[in-house]
Amino acid sequence: MAAKKPSKPWRLVLSTAGGPVYTAHRSKPAAYRAIEEEKQRVADGYSRVVRIAVEQWDIDGSRWQRVEHAWQKGE
């Protein structure tokens, strides 16, 4: 039986010293807006995220698939 597509098929993987934190988003533009917001929180000193990756739900494979490494601290 195939896995059901999640209602928020885009997610960010926020890498921190304590491990990954996942945030789900309904669309690709919403995910990329969230990246910009997280980068601003890092710049302001409110977040300890060191890397952000974007994943999308793969309907055929019934799993999350990495789309890109969107940002890394120090870049």
Rank of each mutant, 00 (worst) to 15 (best):
L12V: 07
V42S: 11
V42P: 06
G61W: 08
A43M: 12
L12D: 11
A43Q: 15
S62E: 15
A34W: 00
E68D: 13
G19Q: 14
V54M: 07
G61S: 09
E36Y: 02
T16K: 14
S62I: 09
S47V: 01
Q56L: 03
R48P: 04
A70H: 07
R51P: 01
R11Q: 11
I59L: 09
Y32V: 01
H69Y: 09
A34P: 02
H69R: 14
V42Y: 14
E38W: 04
W71G: 08
K28P: 00
W71D: 12
A30Q: 11
Q65E: 12
G45E: 09
Q40A: 14
G18T: 07
G18W: 00
R41E: 13
R11T: 00
A43C: 09
Q40M: 10
W71I: 03
A17M: 09
V42M: 14
S27I: 01
A17Q: 12
R48L: 09
V50P: 00
R66D: 04
K28E: 00
D60E: 10
A24N: 13
V13T: 12
E38C: 05
R66L: 08
K28H: 06
R51V: 00
A34F: 01
D44G: 01
Q56N: 04
V42T: 12
Y22K: 09
A30N: 10
R41G: 02
G19H: 15
D44K: 12
K39D: 14
S27H: 04
K28V: 00
R33I: 03
D44F: 03
T23V: 05
E68C: 04
K39H: 11
E68M: 06
Y22E: 13
I52R: 08
A34L: 01
G18A: 14
R41H: 05
E68A: 14
E36N: 14
A34T: 00
V50C: 10
L14W: 06
D44R: 11
A70F: 05
Q56K: 12
H25W: 06
R63P: 01
G45M: 11
Q65D: 06
H25I: 03
P29D: 06
V67W: 04
E68V: 01
V54C: 06
G45I: 07
